[in-house]
Design a protein around this nucleic acid. Structure first.
Length: 754
DNA sequence: AGGTTCGAGTTTTTT
DNA sequence: ACTCGAACCT
């Protein structure tokens, strides 16, 4: 070690605690870092990479770091760049498993006999293929819901069970049917030269197994492998990691079994629990000091997670301040809940100077985002929803992307059929069916028939002409992709123009603000941005290589296929972030609110029965709680709309597991009668009940969200509640509790003519 | 051909 | 309550 490097080594270690430093300096051999929440895990990983390169002398391209999302990959790269040079950092491979696999499969496509331009199918594409399979097999989709069948197939794939093995292994009727669908599904994917997310991993496993030369090449390139969130790796990912690290044994896994929340999609918690038996002699480092949260928040999290029985004990502790109590809010309904959360966040912003960008609202299921979003929008609180795929889910963007995919991979019917008559060009549903039927009967690819519609005799002349014209356009775009010196942006613009997609959006009368057109514009500019970044990155690795238009388009489509929800979160936006608990993994915020902490929601309905699933729900809650640095609010509503109907709820059993001395129920400085928090001292509630009774005297006209207009017959405070008997115009006479009824007063002689 | 209405099913979580 | 697909209308 030279003098300069030893200086650097101490610099890399100076602000680390002992176990952190141990993990950073352990150079060779397997290493497991069991990192509690907020224990400086990311810091350890980045410093470790810095140490490997600056002190151990590893070349940047010898380092492979796997993260859970693309966004985490980007952040890790820039944090590493602060320790070494920007240039060196760019040469490190930092990526998700799926992105890495997609890239490897493209690089080694020829050896696997795979097309370079294969499509990546997302869940929606997969469902379509399942439906298609059921159709072709003449199986009733009612008895075999596509989503369920797909889940069975995906689970099998995660265990590396292919269609053939699956078929021989099942005996019951459902399994046998799934086996048939699985076989057909695989066949359709192959026919379309497409892979689903599972295939990216599986085919990579195959690549490494069947091509020792490739494996050997990769093992020597990636001498140091680091994998984050190891508790959430599945079997295929485990195999890929161990194959890559088999020669040099420099596998560093970091993670926390208490934060394993993806069991439902095949993640195997055993990978991290049994690391030491997979890698005998592995060094194990435990990071238990928390630098993120207040004592109270950490205490609440720790107390709750202790209720998990299938768990290794861990001692979480912190030197941080005691902090504010964790607040548990009991609300009337989801509207009330949203209002309370919104007010609380505003108060934290105004009184405690917490920036909007450092606050978050988490929920178990996406549908809960709507109410809170409406409320924040109404209150003028800046916010963003973490839905990475939202942009690409728009119809016009899906269409545009389908064009690009169809150009790259013309064999892919799913894309081709999506755009064949979008915008409408005189190719009817019947004509499309005829083509499909002909394709099936004569074993001819759909794209061939599109280029040569005369082959399909059942088509009339007009249809044949329209189809031929469409085929010519496709040909033209494909040729342009190969030869022209266009930029990616220019190419996409030309396709949008010539396909008339742009024109269709411009003439769309249902969209007066031309939002769709603007979205297409955004796709074009994102392509331009992508091109710049990609060229920059490539040329740092290899100065002579200028990527072709084709390569650029492939890379961009791959990126689009693999965007994740959190990828859309921009921390500099200065906005409150709304996201699911799953998406919250790995993030931190000054203030966190978790809404809908109710039985059936968290833990989710479908997980209440099974002990293991219940523990996963608890871990999910644990992940949410431990994202909070200073303020934490857990809220639940007494009534919640389910399928448009107000249903009574039960507070989450997890709430009972929180130590009472660390929490505060319904902080008493309530807001106001209608916007405020429910007071829990009986006197306050009785006062409110009396007040409400005064607001709706007998004879007054009210409006109910479900029952419409009505007249109050009788009203009386009863304990904490106010009961009112009301005759509705259409719904008859009902007795309602005013606290929950969401009644609005209607002045008489309004334009309702009442 | 293309748009519109009506009914059913819908809510886990995601790369 | 909302979205998606299928029959139905213009």
């Amino acid at each position: 070690m030279s003098g300069a490097d030893s200086l650097l080594a101490s610099e890399l270690l100076c602000d680390l605690n002992d176990p952190q430093a141990e993990a950073v300096t352990h150079a060779n051999g397997p290493l497991l870092v069991l990192a509690g929440p907020g224990s400086g895990k990311t810091r350890v990983i980045t410093r470790r990479v810095g140490h490997l390169i600056r002190v151990v002398g590893a070349a940047p391209w010898n380092v492979l770091a796997i993260t859970f999302t693309n966004k985490a990959a980007g952040e890790m790269k820039s944090r590493i760049a602060n320790l070494i040079s920007e240039r060196q950092a760019r040469a490190i491979t930092v990526s998700t498993f799926h992105s890495l696999c997609a890239r490897l499969l493209r690089i080694y496509a020829d050896r696997l006999g795979l097309p370079v331009g294969y499509s990546i199918y997302d869940t929606a594409d997969q469902q379509r293929v399942i439906k298609r399979s059921l159709e072709e097999l003449e199986i009733n989709a009612k008895n075999f819901p596509p989503a369920g069948v797909l889940a069975s197939i995906s689970n099998a794939k995660n265990e590396l069970i292919d269609a053939k093995a699956y078929t021989t292994n099942v005996s019951d009727f459902y399994g046998r049917t799934v086996a048939r669908v699985y076989t057909k599904y695989t066949e359709i994917l192959e026919r379309n030269r497409a892979m689903d997310f599972d295939d990216l991993l599986l085919n990579t496993v195959q690549l490494l197994r069947q091509h020792p030369a490739v494996l050997s090449e990769l093992q020597d390139r990636y001498r140091y492998v680091l994998i984050d969130e190891y508790q959430d790796t599945n079997h295929a990912q485990f195999l890929i990691a161990s194959a890559l690290a088999a020669r040099h044994k420099n596998l560093c896994a970091t993670g926390d079994p208490d934060q394993s929340i993806y069991g439902w999609r095949g993640a195997n918690i055993g990978n991290i629990l049994e690391f030491e038996s997979h890698y005998p002699g592995a060094k194990v480092v435990r990071l238990e000091q928390n630098y993120r949260s207040t004592q109270r928040i950490l205490g609440v999290a720790d107390a709750m997670i202790q209720n998990n029985r299938a768990r290794k004990h861990k001692t979480l502790w912190t030197d941080n301040l005691e902090g504010e109590p964790v607040r548990v809010l009991t609300c009337r309904d989801e509207q009330h809940e949203s209002r309370c959360i919104s007010k609380s966040l505003q108060r934290l912003h105004d009184d405690k100077q917490i920036p909007w960008g450092s606050m978050a609202v988490f929920y178990r299921i996406n549908s809960l985002s709507r109410v809170i979003e409406d409320e924040l929008r109404g209150a003028g609180v800046p916010h963003q929803i973490a839905r990475g795929t939202a942009f690409y889910d728009r119809k016009e963007i899906k269409d545009a992307v389908a064009y690009l995919r169809a150009i790259v991979n013309p064999v892919d019917e799913v894309n081709l059929l999506r755009i064949i008559n979008t915008p409408t060009r005189g190719i009817s549903e019947r004509s499309v069916k005829a083509i499909q039927a002909h394709s099936l009967a004569h074993q001819t690819a759909v794209d061939e028939l599109i280029r040569n519609p005369l082959l399909v005799s059942s088509l009339n002349n007009r249809a044949q002409n329209s189809i031929a014209r469409f085929g010519k356009s496709l040909d033209q775009w494909q040729r342009r992709l190969e030869e022209s010196g266009l930029t990616l942006r220019g190419f996409i613009e030309s396709v949008l123009r010539e396909s008339s997609l742009e024109e269709m959006c411009r003439n769309d009368k249902s969209d007066p603000d031309q939002e769709r057109l603007a979205n297409l514009g955004e796709l074009v500019s994102s392509a331009q941005q992508f091109e710049q970044e990609y060229v920059f990155e490539i040329q740092l690795g290899d100065e002579d290589h200028t990527p072709s238009l084709n390569e650029l388009l492939l890379a961009m489509l791959e990126r689009i296929s693999l965007v994740s929800d959190v990828d859309a979160v921009d921390p500099d936006q200065g906005a409150v972030t709304l996201m699911t608990l799953h998406a919250a993994k790995g993030l931190e915020f000054d203030a966190v609110a978790i809404i809908g902490v109710e039985d059936g929601l968290l833990p989710h309905q479908r997980a209440r029965e099974d002990e293991h699933e219940l523990e996963e729900e608890r871990r999910l809650c644990f992940v949410g709680i431990t994202r909070a640095m200073r303020y934490l609010i857990l809220s639940h509503a007494r009534y919640r709309l389910v399928f448009g109907q107000s249903m009574p709820t039960i507070p989450s059993r997890f709430l009972k597991e929180l130590p009472e001395n660390l929490i505060e129920f319904n902080k008493p400085d309530s807001i106001d009668a209608h916007g405020g928090e429910v007071r829990n001292d009986g006197r306050g509630e009785r006062a409110l009940a009396g007040k409400l009774a005064g607001e709706f005297p007998p004879g007054s006209i009210v409006r109910h969200p479900d029952f419409g207009l009505g007249r109050v017959l009788h009203v009386a405070p009863m304990g904490a509640h106010t009961r009112a008997r009301i005759t509705f115009n259409t719904a008859g006479t009902k007795t309602l509790i005013l606290q929950y009824a969401r009644l609005a007063k209607v002045e008489e002689f309004t334009e309702d003519g009442f």
